Computed example of a mutant assay.
Amino acid sequence: MNYRHWLLPVMLIALSACDNNDKTFMVGTLERDRVEVSAESNEPIIAIHVSDGQMLETGDLMFEQDPARLENLLAQQIALKAQSAARLAELQRGPRPETIREARAQLESAQASAKNAAANLKRAQDIFDRDLSDQQSLDLATTRRKTAVAAEQAAAESLERLLNGTTVEELQQAAAALEATEAGVARIQLDIERLKIHAPVDGMLDKRLYQIGERPLAGATIGVVLDSSRTYARIYVPETLRSSVQPGRKLDVRIDGQERVFEGTVRWVSADASFTPYFALTEHDRSRLSYLAEVDVPGASSLPSGVPLEVDFPVAVSADD
């Protein structure tokens, strides 16, 4: 009779313990950060050096795009650079002696023409004053005189410009033009280099999204790499456990297909609640709010991503701690 009196409390305690384990039970999957590899250009893909599931190291060549169009642009820009460099060298050197001699000869020719035009104008004026010519002849001689004087002045200014040499402003403009073409060459060279797409992180190639011959849009994702630097469990924390699951908290992680219990550390818990996904917890808990969380599990780095797992507090720890 005494045996029956103490057996019932023991059973109630056991049931209470099982109920507490259910309340602290959280599920999720083993994950790694997904790094999207994108194409900066819309050139067609001409080579693929990786396959799905392949392990990669940072800098490994993954894809190559056609460089033909950019190479033609580069050749054009290099020619413009050479032209700008030659112009700057010409201004820095100053006018050649034969150019100055030519300008002096042109000035002498313009002076002679002006002198001749002045003499013709004087004769035309004398003839007009004696009523031996009309006004049109006088006007024509006057116009020729003015044209000759203007040509003489232009030749004189041209010679003076050559004798004074290149101005500071002209040199600055030529130097700026050369720098602009050099920057254009560097930009196109960088664009050509980026047609060879390399692995951004160490990890496994999850999926190639394009094949040889296809032309991705600029900025389109052409591959996904699973970053191997961090392995974590993505879990859903019930609302009742939110206050207990804080960054830095140690948790037990049980991964499907593994007998050992892994130690996990909470790294992040979302501040925004959502409804528990259909596969998490029990049927009556699916309508309750939960919080997405990430738990670092460094000991599981050799296991594949996407494996289901269960997370719980250590046996001696209650949800109210």
Rank of each mutant, 00 (worst) to 15 (best):
V149F: 08
G94F: 08
F128D: 08
L140V: 10
A85R: 13
A103D: 07
A151N: 11
L121I: 01
R87S: 08
A85M: 09
R101L: 12
P97T: 07
E102Y: 00
R101N: 12
R101Y: 04
L132N: 09
A110P: 08
A112W: 01
T143Q: 15
K115M: 06
V149L: 13
S113Q: 13
K115V: 13
A105K: 10
L91F: 10
A85Q: 14
R123N: 03
N116K: 13
L107P: 05
A114Y: 00
A89I: 03
S133R: 05
A89S: 15
I100N: 03
K122L: 11
D126A: 15
L88H: 09
E98I: 03
Q106K: 15
S137G: 11
K146S: 13
R145C: 11
E102K: 08
S84I: 04
R104N: 06
L140Y: 05
R96Q: 13
L107D: 02
R123I: 07
A124C: 00
A118N: 10
P97Q: 12
S133M: 05
L107Y: 09
R144V: 02
T143H: 14
D126S: 12
Q111M: 09
E108W: 07
A86T: 08
Q83C: 02
R123T: 07
A148Q: 02
A117C: 03
Q106S: 10
A148H: 00
A82S: 06
L138R: 08
A150Q: 12
F128N: 04
D131Y: 03
S133N: 07
Q125V: 01
A82E: 14
L88A: 02
P97F: 05
E108P: 00
K122P: 02
E102M: 06
R93W: 04
R104E: 15
R123E: 04
A112M: 03
L88E: 10
A85E: 14
A112C: 00
T142F: 12
P97C: 09
A148L: 04
Q111F: 06
Q135M: 09
S137H: 05
A151S: 12
Q135D: 13
L107M: 14
A86W: 02
R101K: 12
D129P: 05
A110L: 04
S113V: 06
Q125K: 13
L91E: 06
R87I: 10
Q136T: 15
S109N: 13
A112D: 02
L132V: 03
R96M: 10
K146R: 15
L132S: 06
A103M: 07
A117D: 01
T143D: 15
V149S: 12
A103G: 10
D131Q: 12
Q135Y: 05
S137L: 06
A89K: 14
S84H: 11
A141D: 06
Q111C: 02
A141G: 09
A148D: 00
S84C: 09
A150C: 02
K122Y: 06
I127P: 01
S137R: 11
R130W: 04
R104T: 03
K122F: 02
L132A: 11
G94M: 01
E90F: 01
E102S: 12
T143S: 14
A141T: 00
R145M: 10
Q111V: 07
Q83F: 06
R130Q: 11
